[in-house]
Simulated scan of single mutants.
Amino acid sequence: MNIFKLIEDIKQVDAEALDRLEFASRRSFMSSLGTKLMAAATPVALASVFNKAFAFTPGAIEVLKFALTLEYLEDEFYKAGNAKAGLIPDMYKPVFAQIGKHESQHVAFLESALGAAAPAKPNFDFTAKGTLPDSLNTFDGFVFLSHAFEDTGVRAYKGQAGNLMAAEDKPLLEYALQIHSVEARHAAVARKILGTIRNRPEIKPWITLNEGSPAAVYAGEDNTVQGGVDINGIAGKSKEAVTEAFDEILTKEAVFAIVTPFLA
């Protein structure tokens, strides 16, 4: 998603928009990762209130269980990476330490919201049964897997949003989409770092058409149909711009196909 291009378009209409959206500016995007993203991480106390005050639908409970499995995966991955001596260069340690904190908060939120219904945390193999031996042995391997997990998480949350539309689930939908937003920022910064360490400027924080960065997790990244409407060419925008503006969804089945190799 090319958020920077979107901001520039908004600025042409409203000159003060960039000030009001300071958190999304080019400069603050990287420099404020450790402070501004925290505002979007849902507090555990709120999850406890949800658990006591709302009777979620059975479908919503299944969405929470699904989301928690993904968050367990990401949380354990960053715990392992951040704890391994010499894996992450000093200049990037604050970035991945903060991402790790977010994932731990997401786990705590979902566990609290589910209560006794929370699934047990699986054991994980971050080499994907030997196919990714460098995932916790080289920084390149670590960042590559970070980008893949975050891409998957973004699309997984978007894919489940429609299952939280019942009236009693609406409060949960709001906070699920906040987590989705945090995951999207994680994916963008992981892409940016991957492009930097590989000296590949074509690896961007967003995806154009189906180019991926470096490989798409979804085969239809060049899709231009959103909400049942083909928006290719809307407002005179190119297909490249339209595909940059939207992340695709992944179904639960597609997500588990990606995640299953990492289950020990």
Score class of each variant (00 low, 15 high):
35 T>H: 13
35 T>V: 14
35 T>K: 14
35 T>P: 07
35 T>N: 15
38 M>E: 14
38 M>S: 15
39 A>I: 09
40 A>T: 12
40 A>N: 13
41 A>L: 03
41 A>T: 04
42 T>W: 03
43 P>L: 13
43 P>D: 05
44 V>S: 15
47 A>I: 02
48 S>G: 15
48 S>M: 13
48 S>Y: 11
51 N>D: 10
52 K>W: 03
53 A>L: 14
53 A>V: 11
54 F>H: 15
54 F>S: 07
55 A>M: 13
56 F>A: 00
56 F>I: 05
59 G>C: 11
60 A>F: 03
61 I>G: 06
61 I>R: 13
63 V>E: 06
64 L>A: 14
66 F>L: 07
68 L>E: 15
71 E>M: 01
72 Y>A: 05
72 Y>E: 10
73 L>H: 01
74 E>F: 01
74 E>C: 05
78 Y>P: 00
79 K>A: 13
79 K>W: 03
79 K>G: 08
80 A>M: 07
85 A>F: 12
85 A>W: 07
88 I>V: 11
89 P>L: 01
89 P>F: 02
91 M>D: 14
91 M>R: 15
91 M>P: 11
92 Y>T: 14
96 F>D: 00
99 I>P: 00
99 I>Y: 00
100 G>T: 00
103 E>S: 05
106 H>E: 02
106 H>Y: 08
107 V>P: 01
108 A>T: 05
108 A>I: 10
108 A>D: 12
109 F>P: 00
109 F>V: 05
110 L>N: 03
110 L>K: 10
110 L>S: 01
110 L>M: 07
111 E>L: 15
112 S>T: 13
112 S>M: 02
116 A>F: 08
116 A>E: 15
117 A>W: 02
118 A>E: 08
119 P>K: 01
120 A>I: 07
122 P>H: 06
122 P>Y: 03
123 N>Q: 08
123 N>C: 03
124 F>M: 00
126 F>K: 09
126 F>D: 12
129 K>L: 04
131 T>G: 08
131 T>F: 08
131 T>P: 09
132 L>G: 08
132 L>F: 04
132 L>W: 11
133 P>D: 09
134 D>N: 15
135 S>A: 10
136 L>E: 00
137 N>I: 10
139 F>W: 08
139 F>K: 05
140 D>T: 11
141 G>S: 13
142 F>Y: 04
143 V>T: 10
143 V>H: 04
144 F>K: 12
145 L>Q: 13
146 S>Q: 04
146 S>T: 02
146 S>H: 03
148 A>E: 09
149 F>D: 03
150 E>F: 01
151 D>I: 00
151 D>W: 04
155 R>H: 06
155 R>Y: 06
155 R>P: 07
158 K>V: 01
163 N>Q: 13
164 L>R: 13
164 L>A: 07
165 M>Q: 15
165 M>G: 11
166 A>D: 15
166 A>V: 14
168 E>C: 06
168 E>P: 01
169 D>G: 15
171 P>K: 03
171 P>N: 04
172 L>R: 01
173 L>Y: 14
173 L>V: 06
173 L>C: 13
176 A>Q: 11
176 A>C: 12
